[in-house]
Amino acid sequence: MTDIFDAIQRTAKRIKKAIDVKDIGYSQQANSSGETQLQLDIQCDMIIEEEFSQVPSIHTIASEEKENAMLLNENGKYFIAYDPLDGSSLVDVNLSVGSIFGIYENAFGADKMVASCYVVFGPRVEMVFAHNKAKLHLLQGENFEFVKEIRLKEKGNLNAPGGTQQNWMPYHKEMVDSFFKEGYRLRYSGGMVPDLHQILLKGGGLFSYPATSDKPDGKLRKLFEVFPFAFIYKTAGGEAIDGKEDLMKLDHAHIHDTSPCFFGSKYEIARVKEVYATNA
Rank of each mutant, 00 (worst) to 15 (best):
R124K: 15
E50D: 15
A81C: 07
G109P: 01
E126W: 06
E105R: 13
I48D: 06
L138T: 07
A134M: 01
L85I: 09
L139T: 08
D92Y: 10
V93Y: 05
L72N: 10
A62Y: 06
C117D: 06
H59S: 10
I103Y: 05
K77D: 10
V120Y: 04
E50Y: 04
G141A: 13
S89I: 12
Q43K: 14
N68Q: 11
D86K: 11
I47R: 03
S89E: 14
V120E: 11
S96Y: 03
L138P: 01
G141M: 10
D83K: 05
Y104G: 03
L71R: 13
N73R: 09
A110S: 13
C44D: 00
V97R: 01
K112G: 00
V114P: 02
K135F: 04
K77M: 04
I61F: 00
I61E: 01
S57P: 00
H137S: 14
V125Y: 01
F79E: 00
D45T: 04
L72M: 13
E105W: 01
E74W: 09
E51N: 08
E49C: 07
G87D: 04
M113F: 00
S88V: 01
G87Q: 05
N68F: 10
A107V: 02
L138N: 08
A69K: 14
D83S: 07
